[in-house]
């Protein structure tokens, strides 16, 4: 494996300095579950790796004054899975995180890494999308907030510019009575990359329900499906599952790869969207 220099800064000043090292390929690292195999396979060739786990606030998992949840970028998947705090209002995020990798990968991999890697197939972005989370980005000039709907710009690409660091996510508290689910299709039951992942969320509104849907692994980035959401929100959801699933499908431009062909992915958008909606409906009815 190609050698590189490793730094673990404890302040953002130090980190920004390292990120700006001239003539060096500098890559920030959190859990390294993607970076290190990538270096081994020569997909990445960093001269310098900056470990962000020691930066202030990156391991925070706390409720803010306005009731929103702050999740630091270096919070690990299994911390989300087992967090009582996350389970209170944001359980769909824990559900997404629980699908990722295997136990030991989840012990290391972070939510920030899961998003910055920007794989269209990642398991936490659909949940973050339906929870209407924002990314908190640190720059030398100060903080900026980017809604997750704008965070991903393409496969393996985000709004993050060179020299910027993801600090974490602010996730508003969902309305009272919210139910959300994440369903995923992969070749195996667990521990495999996503063929299609769908997060669905609904909450009571005007005597009916308002809906949010987000999909992973079916387009260059994880996406919301506003047409499908509108269909469900405006009518009686149980009768519009087919229509909504078809509408979600119209948003997709999946690719063929080792796991599935584009045709199959597209068809599975319908199947899995239906399952996600049905799962939420069942819970709403049971409530």
């Amino acid at each position: 494996m190609r050698p590189f220099d490793y730094y673990r800064p404890e302040s953002f000043e130090e980190a920004f300095h390292l990120l700006a090292l001239p003539d060096k390929t500098v890559i920030p690292m959190a859990g390294a579950t993607d970076l290190l195999p990538g270096v081994r396979d020569e997909a990445f060739a960093p001269d310098v790796v900056v470990d962000v786990k020691g930066l202030p606030g990156l391991r925070d998992l706390k409720v803010l004054e306005d009731g929103a949840l702050f999740v630091g970028a270096a919070v690990r998947m299994n911390e989300l899975v087992h967090s009582e705090l996350v389970g209170r209002h944001w359980a769909v995020l824990a559900e997404g995180a629980g699908w990722m990798g295997n136990e030991q990968v989840r012990n290391r991999a972070t939510i920030g890494g899961n998003c910055c890697t920007a794989s269209p197939a990642a398991d936490t972005p659909p949940a973050l999308l339906v929870l209407e989370a924002s990314a908190v980005i640190k720059t030398i000039q100060g903080d900026r907030r980017v809604p997750m709907t704008e965070f991903f710009t393409g496969p393996k690409r985000t709004v993050l510019q060179t020299g910027e660091l993801l600090a974490g996510f602010e996730i508003p508290q969902p309305p009272l009575g919210t139910v959300a689910r994440y369903v995923k299709l992969s070749r195996r039951k667990k521990g495999d990359l996503t063929i299609v992942g769908v997060a669905a969320l609904a909450y009571p509104q005007d005597g009916g329900y308002a809906w949010r849907l987000a999909l992973g692994a079916v387009a260059p980035t994880p996406v919301r499906a506003p047409k499908a959401e509108a269909l469900l929100t405006k009518g009686h959801a149980a009768e519009r599952i087919e229509q909504a699933a078809s509408a979600a499908y119209s948003f997709c431009s999946p690719i063929s790869d080792i796991r599935a062909s584009a045709e199959y992915r597209t068809a599975m958008v319908i199947a899995m969207t239906k399952r996600a909606i049905q799962g939420v409906l069942e819970q709403l009815e049971a409530a």
Binding site: A260, S261, E263, Y264, A267, M268, A271
Partner: peptide, 11 residues
Amino acid sequence: VAPESLKSPGK
């Protein structure tokens, strides 16, 4: 076996 060859259309 490729699951994609086995799904029923419209299901």
